[in-house]
Design a protein around this nucleic acid. Sequence first.
DNA 1: AGGCGAGCTTGATCTGCAGCAAATTCAACT
DNA 2: AGTTGAATTTGCTGCAGATCAAGCTCGCCT
Lengths: 221, 221
Amino acid sequence: MLLRTNTSSSRPVDGHLAALAGENVFCSEFRYRRGTEVFGEGEETEYVYQIISGAVRTYKLLSDGRRQINSFHLPGDMFGLENGVTHRFTAEAIVETRVRITRRRSLLDATRDREGGVAKVIGLVTQSLQHAENHMLLLGRKTALERVAAFLLEMDERLSQPYVMILPMSRRDIADYLGLTLETVSRAFSSLRDEKMLQFDGPTQRRIALTDRGRLGDLNA
Amino acid sequence: MLLRTNTSSSRPVDGHLAALAGENVFCSEFRYRRGTEVFGEGEETEYVYQIISGAVRTYKLLSDGRRQINSFHLPGDMFGLENGVTHRFTAEAIVETRVRITRRRSLLDATRDREGGVAKVIGLVTQSLQHAENHMLLLGRKTALERVAAFLLEMDERLSQPYVMILPMSRRDIADYLGLTLETVSRAFSSLRDEKMLQFDGPTQRRIALTDRGRLGDLNA
DNA sequence: AGGCGAGCTTGATCTGCAGCAAATTCAACT
DNA sequence: AGTTGAATTTGCTGCAGATCAAGCTCGCCT
């Protein structure tokens, strides 16, 4: 196959977790194995996390098991900084994941009396809100093909490996993120491949190369 | 018909707009006629708004006209306080609406050096985020009937007229909020009436009485 | 009073995606 | 090398909700 994987595995990060508070907070590292829970919905918000490597999904469940994934967190992303005292959703490692951790309280304390620190925290929340607003439009009004195209472009931008990206998440995860079934996601992938907008291979077809970002973008309308 | 409307028209408000900054900002009143735009997507964020009476919808559009309503704003609610310099969606008055307005800058300036002022701003953003997260679950994973039940309970809580509420928005607005068509919304209303969970009448069937909140809640799963 | 139009309901039909099932691939075992 | 199981693809069928089309109600106009 003609695909080539980029060797560098981490993308440019939007700032170290500790930088939020001016380096003077204590950060420790931690690792989660594939499929393990980082925190659960309703638990107390004790830590703030930043991904070093790997990937995390955050989601909500209905009582009968239907799942909606809010967002995927990739290397460099922070998560778990919620304003209330309890988490509003569950976070799980999708693959083996290393994170930097700091106590929420010490981060907030250190942030408060730092120039522009509060603005950065507001910025983080706002970024999530903006993502959620765009995702509501996707979930409420886009077709299956449009959703998958939007997903691919989002991942392309965030993983930003020049030629090829390797998705950490399964078709089921993608489906639960896009409000579809895994079969529909799979069919959309195949149909985009047939239309020559992407190629994929690898053990579980997760190695993806976008070959026509222009037409994928058109599907975003 | 046996329905009775409560005469008091405004609900307990979560705080005057000016209270955010400690009363020392200038607020003026303004009114918008039914269907007029308060601000447009992409415009500069110049003002912050609080509804005195009436209702406002905020939405995003796709290029072909498909519309997703993010949220409805009712008396007491604030909106338009976005972190960036431009609005990420459009806001329109659904009915004749009176608002309190203040300049975003003066509010933020006055808020910054006030005890707990910043926390209140973060609280506002967080509240929107929480609403958006719940709405993603609804849009991604709930059935038509579940969506409509959730909508009715949300409005019941927010309009909180003890016996009867009068919805300001049309079936089309509801549909664009719930990711459905107006016909499907109408059928869901009728089916919930047939199941004796609500009654409705009034000129355009917008006067609603919930008669079994328990079973409506069950539909939320 | 009569006509008009906006908003809503209801019926009939259609369709995009869900649901189910079978086949394939590949990693990780024994 | 063979077996097992997880993940994916693909085909077939079914259905929830979309789409199309009347028909109704009520406020508002002349």
